[in-house]
Design a protein around this nucleic acid. Structure first.
Lengths: 245, 245
DNA sequence: CGCTATTTTGAGCCGCGTCAATACGGGTGG
DNA sequence: CCACCCGTATTGACGCGGCTCAAAATAGCG
């Protein structure tokens, strides 16, 4: 088989660097992509300049144009109801895709806000939709990604206790960070207690208290945003059967 | 433009009859489908014989082969955790698609059980995936359907009161039944109080009590499974801002 | 070094879960 | 047609987990 042309290899290297830890990697990278596909993909993936903490990537009800893959930092997605109450829908780490819920009504269904300094890749939806028609493995990957989002939405469904919820939250963060090459045992929370509590449907005070209890029990060491997991085993056992987030 | 051949029209009539109220209708039906596409679609949509109440359409961890569109009756999807506790994930009315969460790991992520007599259309996934590559409008519809599922999973996210939850549940049923040509104001629940309670993360007794309260307040008339909504307006107001299910 | 947002800690209370008993209804067999 | 049974639903009494309210401690920031 012929070696790819130098030009194509350059594209590939650039993409590999950008996408290596991305959830789209399986299809962005070599798999079944010829030089022409690579170039088209190249034009679709648009790295976007840093958002500072508090800045919005998109807001609810704005027209939908692109999906966004987080490259660095942490996003939170949330909605605000008529009565002004906020509901955090999720936290999104590098390699995770946001905006999928906007495809259906062609309008964003939630707000996406940077919790720290965030860079993303914008993926123009019309381009993605066109390319998936030509690259079966890309379509397959898109279906899988969306399917995963549907399945993971079941995570916090049950009526779990505050301890189960927080344990599941920490385990989820740990696992996802590890998948992306970070430490599974120590990390810095990008989100406030208030955001965690809101996401887990608890009161801020409850989250604070459960953090304290976990520390008393020797499960973790926690100092504000700084978390060290001391006993991954027991913490995992606490999740009972909260589905993986 | 030439009239379609008699043969194609027959297929179309059959499909229209089967799929007219189905969520896939937008793409199963005429839109951009030529005679060949129609025939291929014809081979994919496999109406499947009636399941009686209590029978399972699929079970968790079984290999994934097909998506299922409900044709008649009502399905519930649920998971059972390690401790044997059940969590109802959703109720699925005619025209709704189940099994999308199984695409990612190629294995069913929940159980699907008939609550009454249920008929479905089985859609072989490999066939669907192949056809979507050839029929852009079909791919678009698949993406939209999956997107809708992702968005709707936010419905019960917030920390709502028992009344808000039950009101939202009734409004959702009402709206979805109406979309399918049934009455928005009176219907018969296919599910037990226990299933409703479990789905809404409440106790059975609480659901019973809130039903009673809604009746006292003149919002509904309820007699076991028989529900009449008397004041759709006020019931809707009770949902506050529970996202549409 | 003050200002403010965040986090922690304490005290009291309430909505909903739990436990228990009763009522209802549909199916089955006599 | 009635008697019986069992799953479902209702209703009441009580207790608790987590929310609310309040206040202090800590950190980040201009």
């Amino acid at each position: 088989m012929a070696q790819p042309a130098a030009e194509a290899r350059l594209d590939l290297q650039r993409l590999r660097k950008v996408c290596s830890s991305c959830s789209l990697a399986e299809l962005c990278l070599p798999m079944g992509l010829n030089r022409q596909d690579l170039q088209r993909l190249d034009s679709i993936v648009q790295p976007t300049g840093p958002l500072h903490a508090g800045a919005h990537l998109y807001r609810v009800d704005t027209p939908f144009h692109a999906l966004y893959a987080v490259r660095s930092g942490c996003l939170k997605t949330y909605i605000v109801d008529d009565t002004g109450r906020e509901q955090v829908l999720g936290f999104h780490l590098p390699g995770e895709l946001v905006g999928l819920d906007a495809i259906y009504p062609d309008r964003h269904q939630c707000n996406a806000m940077a919790l720290d300094t965030v860079t993303v890749c914008a993926l123009q939806y019309t381009d993605i939709a066109a390319l998936t028609l030509q690259v079966p493995s890309l379509q397959k990957q898109m279906f899988r990604l969306m399917s995963k989002d549907i399945a993971s939405s079941h995570a916090l469904a049950g009526d779990f206790t505050a301890e189960e919820r927080l344990a599941a939250f920490l385990m989820s963060l740990s696992r996802r960070l590890q998948l992306r090459g970070y430490s599974a045992a120590e990390f810095i929370l990008a989100m406030t207690r208030r955001d965690i509590a809101n996401y887990l449907r608890l009161a801020t005070e409850t989250v604070s208290r459960v953090f304290a209890k976990f520390q008393e029990d020797g499960l973790i060491e926690v100092e504000r945003r700084d978390v060290h997991i001391l006993d991954l085993e027991r913490l995992g056992a606490l999740c009972r059967s909260v589905p993986k987030i």
